[in-house]
Each structure stands twice: as C-alpha cells, then as structure tokens.
Design a protein around this nucleic acid. Structure first.
Lengths: 237, 237
DNA sequence: CAGGGAATTGTCAAAATCGTACAGTTCCCG
DNA sequence: CGGGAACTGTACGATTTTGACAATTCCCTG
C-alpha cells in the first residue's frame, strides 16, 4: 500500500481537515474501487471503516418490513459513509451502496475516533457533516410529501450532477423509478417533459444535462437548501 | 427555582442517565410550561438550551423557499429538542414548535457539553438518540414516498399516541392535513375509513384511539422501525 | 338565550398518479 | 449477422389526491 498524498485527495471532508488532522488519519488510509452495487453499509451489520467517497455516487436506502424501499440520502465526493459509527453505533438499519461506480478512501473507525477525541475542529467538521445529512433526509421527506414528479426528478438529477461532475450521466428510467419510488413509465413521461423544455437530453441508458439553470428552476424549492447549508458549514471550494 | 428530583422526571433520556450524570445537569435544570405553538427552535436562530420534553408533543417542520412545509420529526417525553446543538451547531434551518401543549426541563447547552465531554456513557446516549431521530427522518421520507394516506395517517396517530399516552387526542382535520402535507378533505375521508374499521372514533376537534392494534395493522411497515430502534438503543421502561 | 361568525367537517368533480400490459427499439454477445 | 436481453414508448382503466364549495357545530356577545 502506497502513501496517499494530500494533493491527490478529492474528498471535500478530507480536504477540509487541517494538516495535522490529515496526517493523523493518513497511515490508516487505503484507496479502494467501488463497482456498481458495492455495499458499503449493510443493514444491521457492523462496519469497521469510514468511507470517504472520492468519486461515484452512493445512496442510503430505507426499507420497511413489508419491503417498501426508497432512497433517502445521496453521498458523493462531498461526504462519507458510516455516519452511524461517528454517533458511536455499531450498526444501522439503513443500507448504503453504490449507484454509480467510483472509489473511496477508507479509514479504520478507531483512527477516526482518535482524531475526533483529540481535535475539536475535526470533530466539529464531521458533526456538521452529519447535520447536513439530516437536512438532506428532512428534504427527502419534504420532496416526497409536497412536490410532484417533475420537481423530484429534477432534484434527483441535480443532486446526481453535483456528485458526478459530468453532464453525461449513465441512468436508466428503471433505475430512476427505483430511486424516486414511482413507477417506471411515469419517469419516462416526465423525462419527456424535461426534454421538451430543453433542460436535458435523454438517450438510451443516458441522460445529459443540457441546461442546469432551467432544471433548477423546475425543481424550485425542492432542491438546494441542504446544499447551501453544506457550503456554509463545510465550505465551498 | 426549586430543585428537580430524579423521581419527578418523566423524560426517558434524563431517566436513562446515570446518577452522577443526572446530578451534573441538575443545577442547571429548569422546568418550563410549553403552551401550544411555543417555538423551541426557530429557523436559523441560535438557541441556548436543550429541551428535555416532559409532556406534550413538539414537531420538527422542514420548509422550503417556496413555502412548502411538512412535519419531518416528532418529539415527546422520549426525546429532546436542540439536537443540532449536540452536533456543535449554533443554528438549524428547521423549526421546532409545540403541536400539543406540555412541559419540558431545560438545561443550558454548555452544561450538556460538559457532561458529554466527561461522561462517555452519557455522550453515547445522546448520540444514539440523534441516530433514532435520523431514522425517524428517513422513515418520514419513506412514508411520504411509498405509503398512502390511510397508512400515513395511522402512523401519525400512533406516533402521537405514543407521546400523549391518552386515548383521547385533541386534533382537527386541518391540523392533521398540515402535518401530513395533504389536502384537509383527504384527511376527513380517510378518518372516516379508519372509523369504519373501528380503529378510532372521531368527533369535532377530537380523535379517540379505539383499537390500537388495528391501527398498527393498517399502518403496516409504515410505523414502528424507529420506535423499535429507540427501545433497543435507549431501552424501554 | 338567540343570533352571527368563525372554526370545523362533509361532499364531489377534476386532475394526477398508479398498475399493468404490450409493442417497439437499441445494444450486446456469440 | 442473428437472437435475446435490456431499455424505452404508449395506452387505459382504477385509484388516489386535489381544489372548490357546501353544510354543520361551536362559541361569543349582546
């Protein structure tokens, strides 16, 4: 295993750490690939590492006993997986897995504990991140409860775009319908609407963002609040 | 101000604290009444105290710039208001206010900080509580996205019943529609359905739980997971 | 204790969404 | 190049939710 240099790290949380804090974690860091559908956190199964996402998209999915499921959180290069460990829990009922392949830097939980016990600034950084995750959860609830499909679809595409940083995104209608918890043909219909407004261009297995501003306009208040809070607390680049 | 004795405290979090931990907070405790609509946490306004709810019902409401709002969290005698302070934040965009009047014990934030810095068990207790709140948020998103109105209405009534501990609850259709983020007349229709199944009895401005088991059956997987996790982590009485 | 007004509840047509089915298209692999 | 799988387009009745309006109940005031 080769040393991971600060300059080579894309993750925004690791980037926001002070030099000393980074160096404390550095010996435990390991780079891993995350192919599609890799499970980072299995429901009710203990995890030993924190995953700082470098690229790709992970999502947190909540599921009920009668097998209803929906995506409730989005994690990319701005975040980490395993927040429950930061809250000193061994397990969580929610599942986290890769929706778009990518990579991450893992750090053993114990090392992160040592950091947050010693370094109040690092502790606050991670705690503030947990808070932005809560905000994202709250806005998922709000979006699902009060916004229609076009708005939610726009929100999802925008959140994905933030994390992939490429106008071309490999997404199928089927996949989006699972994420949003709606039926697949509804996604098709509403993608046509978005395409009719020239906000996107959809081809087989692929969606290209054509006019991000328009997409934000369509999403309205459904998108943006958690993102602004992240920038305020963690800092934009 | 009069000393608050351990035996007089109903709040489950305070009850779960060790004797020493309780005694550390005790000098800062103050009992306050919380009439209907009292704001405990104002959006983006700093708060100086943690509120340990003793009775009544507080709810966390998320709101967007285009004035859509919905309840995303329920807090009663099992919880506390001001979790963002535990995550070392001054403010949060979400509003928390009383939906059913009650009372609380307040403790200055600094005193709570001292406790969690000194006492790992107390720290873990509060962090685990934050985790159950996140779970509640996730399940609000799930409920809004995947369950219909009867199920969500049942869920809400059950969560309220857990916290009020009285079969008679003062609730109007209008109020419930605001909580669930749906049309008021839809609430009326679905209350009739629940009443037709003899799960509840609705009279003007009042709903009586008649058959809690039936209500749980109607709610299905929509209700219960966060509550079970709370009992597992914080402990049932 | 009667009357007026506000709060609360009831009803129903219109719109959105769902469930399902099936056909057409594109891509991949042998 | 052909066959099959994956993906997308479309249709339609059933169901759910919305939006507007009507009816009822309660409470306050004179």
């Amino acid at each position: 295993m080769q040393d991971i240099k600060r300059a080579d790290v894309r993750n925004r949380l690791l980037g926001a750490l002070g030099t000393q804090a980074f160096e404390l974690l550095q010996p435990g860091m390991e780079r891993i690939d995350l192919p599609l559908r890799t499970v980072l956190v299995e429901s009710d199964q203990p995890t030993s590492h924190i995953f700082f996402i470098e690229s790709g998209l992970a999502s947190i999915v909540a599921r009920t006993v009668d097998d209803e499921a929906i995506e409730v959180g989005h994690i990319g290069w701005e975040g980490l997986c395993g927040t429950h460990r930061l809250l000193r829990l061994e397990t969580t009922p929610n599942r986290t897995f890769m929706q778009i392949d990518g990579s991450a830097i893992t750090v053993p939980v114990e090392l992160v504990y040592r950091l947050i016990d010693e370094d109040a600034a690092a502790r606050d950084l991670f705690f503030h991140y947990i808070h932005t995750c809560e905000l994202q959860l709250a806005h998922s609830a709000l979006a699902n409860g009060r916004y229609n499909m076009s708005e939610r679809l726009s929100r999802w595409l925008l959140m994905c775009h933030d994390r992939i940083r490429d106008d071309d995104m490999a997404l199928t209608h089927e996949f989006l319908s699972l994420m949003l918890g709606v039926r697949r043909s509804g996604v098709t219909d509403h993608l046509h609407i978005l395409e009719g407004m020239h906000a996107i261009k959809a081809t087989r297995g692929r969606i290209r963002i054509r006019d991000r501003a328009k997409l934000e306009e369509i999403a309205g208040g459904c998108y943006g609040a958690p993102e602004r809070e992240y920038d305020r607390l963690i800092g934009s680049r």
